[in-house]
Design a protein around this nucleic acid. Sequence first.
DNA 1: ACAGCTACTGAACAGACTGTCCGAAAACAT
DNA 2: ATGTTTTCGGACAGTCTGTTCAGTAGCTGT
Lengths: 198, 198
Amino acid sequence: MAEDRRTRRTRRALREALVALVLERGFGALTVEDIAERADVARATFYSHFQGKDDLFARVTSDLLADLDERMRPAVTESTVGFTGRPLLELLRHARDERDLYRIVLQGEGDGRPLRMFIDSCARVTAMEFRVRAERNGVTPRIDPDLLARVWVGEQVAVLQWWVAHETPPMPAEEVVRMLLDLALRGRYWASGFDVPG
Amino acid sequence: MAEDRRTRRTRRALREALVALVLERGFGALTVEDIAERADVARATFYSHFQGKDDLFARVTSDLLADLDERMRPAVTESTVGFTGRPLLELLRHARDERDLYRIVLQGEGDGRPLRMFIDSCARVTAMEFRVRAERNGVTPRIDPDLLARVWVGEQVAVLQWWVAHETPPMPAEEVVRMLLDLALRGRYWASGFDVPG
DNA sequence: ACAGCTACTGAACAGACTGTCCGAAAACAT
DNA sequence: ATGTTTTCGGACAGTCTGTTCAGTAGCTGT
């Protein structure tokens, strides 16, 4: 048999209440009672599903990461040939679909733990991507791939923060990818408006 | 007359206790009693100096930002001519001198508020730097300077996080600057080991 | 549609933390 | 030495936590 409809409803309501309240007041300012009340659920019921607000938040965010991981997998393996930007595009689409949650995570709610996990996950995948591509093309990186991956992910996070902060996307995902790819390949000198020297 | 020696000692002890405890357990897990006990100060005394742990944390971090701002000012005005990396170098030195606090802030403790303030501050300065330089050299940016500044700061934050996470600096500040400058000017294509086309 | 589970409710509980108050004691500046 | 200022330690009500439990409502499978 599938999951009981009541538990589904309750868990869903609690998750949505958490997201809404974190956006309104910030995670640190919330109490379990706040969340339960917003979800229209008894406090005792909350504790029969989660150990506390940290637990609820951890589950919500780790589910998000798992979902992202699943969506990224095909894009990554397909992208080890060249700098296609496919993984980044998939990331942006995911962020568009789960905007509120991304806002929360990218803001560093929960003492930054979810954001660190997000960054670590992205950096791990990216570093692997770099290594595979370098090997395939027979080149040796001039900068440690792990560090380079963190820098690249740092850029992406910065753009994501800017992107999801707006109520309506300030530019389509495809354009963001093109821009970031231009920047990554041609460098900031070019982006600043200077002609690239020979 | 200067500040009473007792208040100086007490405030200092409380600040140091906070930093140490946040590194050990994370901000969210701390109580006022924890901090007061570590500082060897009565709980009532804590409240005669700060409104609560959020207030203490806010003061510590905003003092850090003010200090950074002061140290950066000369480096920035001197750097609007070309991509010297002076501001970045100053930032790295500040991070070296205040490593523990930087760890805390860059980790996103306090629901990410201090980190957001840090990033906003850096991005504001950087965007201004970009604009001034573009005007001086008579070029028009190919990417919105505000967004470009956020990306550039995002890279710096990523590197800072990597840099301060180590117990002893994994490479000297000057080398980090050179690396990031190379990356920013020549692009990731070059950094990955490929020869730059054209 | 009914029987038998299972989950939710609302209330109560001890324990921890908060924020404030106070008189007594200690440290300070002069 | 004196008057001022800070710290101390204890006490206080109020909030939040995490758990328990009997009663009620809702669900699933047949």
